[in-house]
Nucleic acid binder design. Structure first.
Lengths: 364, 364
DNA sequence: CTGAAAGCGCTTACAG
DNA sequence: CTGAAAGCGCTTACAG
């Protein structure tokens, strides 16, 4: 493949001139410019972006480590990131950590060694190894944490109001008259802790006791939904809040095994909305997280750190964007069955009045 | 960040020696080696992979352009690719074309400019621009086509036996006694053409007439499933084969509008199996494509072209791997309802005896 | 306006 | 066994 010197020779100019016309980085007189353009055309010259990256000390590439795109929650987040990334002319390096700290560390080291311009990370459980933290600090590569917190690296953050969303879900169940509400939570990560807080807060607002045995952790996979579901059903809840879609799938299997019908015998509110939920029964009532926006805003935040807008001095503070959830009422919560026979309690929760999509935004 | 010369200086050796210990590419005497290792440790030296790529003329990076990972078919394919990629120590650049030829061309040009070592492509509809085809040829960057064919670039291929899978699906419906079987097909791409061939072949084997008005194209999205579904329902089919999951979701909405129940009023067999299909009603009967394996084998094929195994001369022929589908019988096809009341016709189709996962493999 | 030259940070024959 | 030097293909001050 032709390089910049081949083009320069054919156009009888210097490499610097070729570079100037390719990048439109300096005025080049019309005659030289057209000679260069012709040479590029003849030789089918394509600048080598690896060499450019080395010279410019930036790769125009972002690295994203997701938990697992085979979990249907993540693809939309990745799309949000990718669309924002491509809109800026950047490329996206994608990795899945499977919530495994070792894999995650491995991916991050590679990204940093490849000199990505920024990193998007949904933290796997556990801590980041000290060497990775040190590398982030030494390289000053900007990081944006997505959903989950706790890397130990100073960074911007895009999260979801998990606490408020869970509160809304549980409050919805309480309003429908359920009295023994279980929770199928995620593993011990920041999002799960915030969700648990929302669950407890709703119980408190309704002056219901908190029974820790009604909260069972899981790892967001189908099998965990089944296993933890069985464990939970033994405690006889009349409703349950489930932290994600795949665990709900497993939970449905547990229900079938117990010959329980949803929503007749047990009410369900779950996280993650999907286009197909309307088409199959029971139609799930969900707390939807704005998946695409999570990704898009995370990427945009990252770009602000990479290329501060003109005039905007490099921020020295860190930003947190918290996105809202929304309750989608369908049938699994038993709304149809219950809202009619008892007046749906419209007692306003203190959270139910917020309107804007973004709750909090600004220096934390 | 420290570079190789900083390390060399501190260890009182040359950069070549540092390189030799970092890459274990040559013997280095123990004293020098330990000095180098200490220097690396002290300076927290991490080789700059951009510079290495430029020097070595390879990036250890693959580019993959998928159609759209927000369609739940693709994430598993991407995982297959990523796992195989990471197992080799490579990175993966991901892009979505949205089945748009312009986006696709744009992504491919960028990948090539970034000097990826290989490309995985699921072709968007339409043709590849001549300049992109020319670039592939000139650069000799290996390409593997995934599922869809027709780039105009000589390449290895991983496909699925769409024709056989569709045949099996339609034959299943015919055996169940359906007489007016519609088809909600994809857009005019190679996979859709092969599926149509399978559909027609099944009808022929059962000596049923082919009615082109019972075949409606779609673009694999929910809306198309609804729109084309409405169009199809007007022709009054008693069963339908649908080319993917999202269109099935749209079709279910069309059914609801027509007050039709599945499987009582209409039987459905669809493509793409998912873990959640067992949990919701109607439980879909599907032709499953081995998504993860498609991705994994495509990546492996690509690596064979990138780094031929020792002794294996660079292949001059092109390979095609065709993976099998499998029929998962659940309830949407009406099996329960019909298999009992009429003896399920066990007439063996000529395709039903194959066993191996891989049908054909070898030079085409 | 244009070009010569240095620099980005590695690798890799090739001497010694 | 080890190092000096050239090369990978760009960009970017800096002269002129």
């Amino acid at each position: 493949m032709a390089n910049i010197y081949d083009v320069a020779r054919r156009a009888r100019v210097s490499a610097a001139t070729v570079s100037a016309v390719v990048n439109e980085s300096a005025y080049v007189s019309p005659p030289l410019k057209s000679r260069v353009e012709q040479a590029i055309e003849r030789l089918q010259y394509r600048p080598n972006l690896v060499a450019r990256s080395l010279a410019q000390q930036r790769t125009r590439t972002l690295g994203m480590v997701a938990l697992n795109i085979a979990n249907p929650f993540w693809p939309a987040v990745v799309r949000g990131v990718e669309d924002a990334t491509r809109a800026r002319g950047y490329e996206l390096l994608l990795a899945n950590s499977d919530d495994d700290p070792d894999k995650e560390a491995q991916c991050l080291r590679l990204f940093l060694a490849k000199r990505v311009d920024g990193v998007l990370l949904t933290k796997a459980r556990g801590r980041l190894p000290a060497d990775v933290v040190a590398e982030f600090k030494a390289s000053a590569v900007p990081l944006v944490q997505v959903m989950r917190l706790g890397t130990g690296v100073r960074s911007d953050v895009v999260t979801v109001d998990e606490e408020g969303g869970t509160y809304e879900a549980v409050a919805h169940l309480l309003r429908l008259g359920y009295t023994k509400i279980g929770m199928l939570n995620g593993p011990n990560v920041s999002t799960s802790r915030r969700r648990l807080a929302g669950y407890r807060e709703a119980l408190r607002a309704w002056q219901r006791p908190f029974d820790p045995r009604l909260v069972v952790p899981g790892d967001f996979r189908v099998e965990a939904g089944y296993d933890s579901g069985i464990a939970l059903l033994k405690r006889g809840p009349d409703a349950v809040f489930i932290a994600n879609y795949l665990m709900t799938v497993g939970f449905m299997q547990a229900l079938r095994q117990y010959q329980l019908r949803c929503p007749e015998d047990i009410g369900i509110v779950t996280c993650d909305d999907h286009p197909w939920l309307d088409a199959f029964a029971p139609r799930l009532t969900t707390i939807n997280l704005p998946k695409y926006d999570i990704g898009r805003r995370a990427a945009e935040l990252l770009f602000e750190a990479i290329e501060p807008a003109d005039g905007a001095a490099k921020r020295s503070t860190v930003r947190t964007i918290t996105l809202r959830t929304s309750l989608h009422i369908r049938e699994s919560c038993g709304y149809e069955l219950r809202a009619r026979r008892r007046s749906y309690d419209r007692r306003a929760s203190r959270r139910s009045t917020r309107r804007a999509d973004t709750i909090g935004e600004g220096p934390q």
